[in-house]
């Protein structure tokens, strides 16, 4: 369960303060599938980074399974990231000049997964992310944007995390591949009960979720249950 209480994030640049998140308070229960939508620059990615234990809020509390992790040490946060969270970055952030397989296996290395399990699990994750087997040995910088995106998704799935955070996971994908990815998310949510939060611009992607949170200028302007009207 995730809970934000009065979450505020302020960036300082050139002496000016930029309030990106203003007093956000909301709860996400285990097993929810949430879409976050909102215009560019509204603070979606910033919020995701905090939810993913990658960044800390300026003030307010972030309770992860009931614990205020803003007070956690660096190593404790690393432990949460490697065991419970899968994160898909908007900018992919793959290791440069490194093969697709090695990129996907990276979280398994830090999680001390037995060597023999790593490759099969990485391949499985890549398949679920919709990447062709031909590309598994390619270097990360020899891929198209959409292929990189699928590698980033596979890397987030490979640890079998209970919370998956995906920043624009279908932004670079065609409708067909986008559907494969969404199907994977939905399956993880339905069959395994994983919590999934994704950011999107596309209404039909948001439709896949059960709840849609709309953010504008760092505040939640709408938080509604999705009735799957378009399905």
């Amino acid at each position: 369960m995730l809970e934000c209480k009065n979450l505020t994030k302020i960036y300082e640049s050139g002496g000016e303060e930029l309030i990106v998140l203003k007093n956000l308070s909301f709860k996400i229960e285990d097993g929810e599938f949430v879409a976050i939508i909102g215009p560019s620059g509204s603070g979606k990615s910033t919020l995701m980074h905090i939810l993913g234990a990658l960044d800390t809020p300026t003030s307010g509390e972030y309770l992860f399974n009931g614990k205020n992790i803003s007070e956690f040490s660096d190593d404790e946060l690393a432990n949460i990231r490697k065991t419970q969270i899968g994160f898909v970055f908007q900018a992919f952030n793959l290791l440069p000049r490194t093969s697709v397989l090695r990129n996907v296996m990276l979280p398994l290395v830090y999680a001390d997964t037995p060597e023999a399990e790593r490759e099969p699990r990485a391949k499985e994750a890549l398949k679920n992310a919709g990447l062709d087997e031909d590309h598994f040995q390619h270097l990360s910088n020899q891929l198209s944007g959409g292929q990189m995106q699928r590698v980033a998704i596979a890397r987030a799935l490979v640890n079998n995390p209970t919370l998956i955070l995906a920043d624009e996971p279908t932004g670079n994908l065609d409708t067909k591949t986008g559907k494969i990815v969404l199907e994977t998310f939905r399956k993880l949510n339905k069959e395994h009960g994983h919590t999934i939060i994704l950011i999107t611009h596309e209404p039909d992607v948001a439709e896949a979720a059960n709840r849609i949170i709309t953010i504008r200028d760092g505040v939640i302007v709408e938080d509604k249950k999705n009735t799957h009207s378009l399905l």
Binding site: G52, D75, A78, R81, N93, L95, P96, P107, Y110
Partner: peptide
């Protein structure tokens, strides 16, 4: 720059400072 990004990425997928 590239290295620092790489370090950020490694930490994002679970590496600790000592790793």
């Amino acid at each position: 720059t590239e290295r620092t990004r790489e370090i950020g990425l490694r930490k994002a997928v679970g590496a600790t400072q000592s790793d």
